[in-house]
């Protein structure tokens, strides 16, 4: 769980988005939907670790795709090749835990990624590709700068941007026509997940993001609301998630 890895590269893809590769022991294993919690600083600012979805993982390395939004990601963006990163993980459950191959055989698998939600969906897409399972990827973001087509080469993908600068113009969710044979796996902003809740599908599975303290199930910071009859319960994104049955989640 407590791990260290050397930075292989930490490439700037555009103004705010970086592509980081960490070398890890061959014994390290992770599944799509899981994340790692990186110590980005050696002093007290920022104090807490920062959680990042795993963008890709193959024997001996982990890739992270991240956007610089504040202090923590800024510090991470300064890491150089050969720097040692201290991280905890992999943490959380996986899309794979919700993937029933036999049950899903005759169904249409849709993957929906919004913004940086693309990171974990990308890892899952590669998992499906390796298993030779057909799927369609719906990939939406604000504009062209936030779409990374270079990572979609092998996927059947439909792209949409808010301003139409890449792919179709409009919200990605407006291009999804679900039916009783559709299975959706998604990750992105809560507004996107909420829209997906109203799309018709056989099953909808979503990975959630949240503000985290410990990513170890103890601080209870990262909770989301889960249906429980007429009541609700709080579930920890870091422990019961990150992946949930979307119909179980109450998005406000």
């Amino acid at each position: 769980m407590l791990n260290q890895g050397k930075v292989v590269f930490n490439r700037k893809l555009n103004n705010t988005i970086y592509y980081l590769r960490i070398k890890v022991p061959i014994s390290f294993k992770a599944q799509p939907g899981q994340f790692i919690n990186i110590k980005v600083s050696d002093d007290y600012v920022p104090l807490l670790r920062r959680p990042f979805s795993i963008f890709n993982h193959e024997r001996g390395f982990i890739d992270i795709l991240y956007k610089v939004v504040g202090n923590g990601t800024k510090k991470l963006s300064n890491k150089k090749r050969e720097d040692i990163l201290d991280f905890i993980g992999p943490v959380g459950n996986s899309y794979v835990d919700f993937f029933y191959e036999d049950e899903f055989k005759e169904k249409n698998i849709y993957l929906v990624a919004g913004g940086t939600g693309f990171a974990s969906i990308h890892f899952f897409a590669r998992w499906l590709l390796r298993k030779k399972i057909k799927f369609k990827l719906f990939y939406g973001a604000k504009n062209k700068k936030e779409i990374f087509q270079r990572f979609c080469k092998n996927f059947d993908v439909l792209i949409a941007t808010d301003d139409g600068s890449c792919g179709k113009k409009g919200l990605i969710t407006s291009f999804i026509n679900g039916d009783k044979d559709t299975i959706i796996f998604c990750c992105g902003p809560q507004t996107m997940l909420k829209t997906i809740q109203s799309i018709k599908a056989y099953k909808k599975i979503a990975s959630f993001e949240s503000y985290m303290g410990c990513a170890n199930g103890v601080c209870l910071s990262c909770v989301i609301k889960i249906n429980k009859g007429k009541e609700f319960d709080y579930a920890r994104v870091c422990k019961e998630g990150t992946v949930f049955d979307l119909d179980d989640v109450i998005i406000i």
Binding site: P46, L47, Y211, C219, S221, V223, K225, Y234
Partner: peptide, 10 residues
């Protein structure tokens, strides 16, 4: 049950 989120800020 505790408080509604957001529950933490650095």
């Amino acid at each position: 049950k505790g408080n509604p989120p957001q529950r933490i800020v650095e």
